[in-house]
Amino acid sequence: MPINGPKKDKDLEVTVHDEDDGSVFQIEGEPQERVDAIVQRLYKDHLHRERRDGDRLRCDDNGDDVFAHLSKNLQAYRSTHCHGLVWNFLGDQGGAAA
């Protein structure tokens, strides 16, 4: 289900898999919009919280860290780092040391 206003013809669509609950949804963005804006909509409209240490957001194509590219525009980011614009989100988890 898209989290957006009216779609414009050339909007790009980011698909996000929430690996914590198995849901999947789309976020639309304009090509010149920063990746950071898409990520903010992810947190505000789907996760309903602020970003936390330990959160991971990765490109499904190659495992690349989305957070490393927040200042890029979406079109450039798609061309250089994440062609499919499919992301996987995971929140923090405790482990052996916890």
Partner: peptide, 19 residues
């Protein structure tokens, strides 16, 4: 008896077997 932080802890309604 492991002790996660609140952010790490399994939370029904937020986490499923997907996690």
């Amino acid at each position: 008896n492991h002790g996660p932080t609140e952010a790490q802890r399994w939370t029904p309604g937020r986490h499923t077997v997907a996690a």
